[in-house]
């Protein structure tokens, strides 16, 4: 809703405390509003699989529902999914850009960019408005993501990639790194599995994460919603019969009814509780 980018000097009122942990904290540009409470970073590959997208959305939703900020980088793939997951449940989302604060990159994410601001979230960058999205700026951006977050979740990552840089920087800053394990022969889990081998905490799902985060960041402030048997992160239509222990026909009927009553919504292939 805030239309003018503001420059926030180091250490001034509203400057993210986490950034002070960096060796040379940069002044930042800010659109929208930050929360005082630190965020949780959800990062991963741009070439995400459905599995990665699902998980990132679920993590984004659960983090938002628990009252924390979801921090990510607005990149294609996992980043976008994490933002979407958080926005879907009207959570607080923050995107840290590797370009000028008014330059939405990739351009196709202009919708997410606008939704973050409309939803009361924030866009953050250390670069002046108008700075183009140069590739070399992205690793530098990742150190901001790591520093602004109380914990880092790596959802899906190949053996190289920005997510691993974020995880390493986070670990150096003393932030706990949570990683989703995957099959050992899966290209997009290779980076994740290595992180676990090297000492990161494995998490087996969004609910797992909430428990761990409670220990790390302090007790969450969960938003309560009537339970309809669909996890906060959403579920696919084919999963409903086993979630509800109903036949396929009964599940479809129940789903249709929930939809008409406005208690669930379709987001792509997902059925999401509202």
């Amino acid at each position: 809703m805030v239309s003018e980018p503001r420059r926030v000097p180091v250490g001034s009122d509203g400057y993210p405390v986490g950034l002070l942990d960096l060796e040379e904290p940069p002044p930042i540009w800010l659109l929208g509003a930050l929360m005082e409470r630190p965020g949780i970073a959800v990062v991963g590959t741009r070439r995400a699989t459905r599995y990665g997208i699902d998980l990132a959305e679920r993590f984004g939703s659960v983090i938002g529902l628990s009252g924390w900020t979801t921090v990510s980088g607005l990149a294609r793939g996992v980043d976008t999914a994490a933002h979407r997951g958080c926005l879907r449940i009207s959570g607080h989302a923050v995107a840290v850009l590797g370009s000028g604060i008014d330059v939405c990159y990739p351009a196709e994410n202009s919708g997410v960019y606008a939704d973050i601001l409309d939803g009361g979230g924030a866009i953050v960058s250390e670069y002046a408005p108008g700075t183009p999205p140069d590739r070399w700026r992205f690793p530098a951006r990742n150190r901001l993501i790591a520093a602004m977050s109380a914990a880092i979740v790596v959802v899906e990552s190949a053996s190289t990639g920005g997510a691993l840089i974020t995880a390493r920087l986070g670990a150096e800053l003393g932030r706990p790194v949570f990683v989703v394990p995957g099959d050992v022969d899966r290209e997009m889990s290779e980076g994740c599995n290595r992180l676990i081998r090297d000492g990161a905490h494995p998490v087996l799902g969004a609910e797992d994460l909430v428990e761990e985060l409670g220990l790390v960041v302090g007790p969450p402030a969960p938003v309560t919603r009537p339970d309809i048997g669909i996890p906060a992160g959403g579920a696919q239509i084919g999963e409903l019969p086993s979630l509800w222990s109903l036949s396929i026909t009964e599940s479809l009927a129940k789903l249709g009814r929930l939809e008409i009553e406005g208690r669930v919504k379709r987001v792509g292939d997902f059925i999401v509780p509202i």
């Binding site: 070439r47 995400a48 699989t49 459905r50 599995y51 990665g52 699902d54 793939g77 292939d269």
Partner: peptide, 15 residues
Amino acid sequence: GYLGDHRRPCDCRPA
């Protein structure tokens, strides 16, 4: 063909 697949990443641009 792999948008939405659980194992393989999709290499298509959204446009």
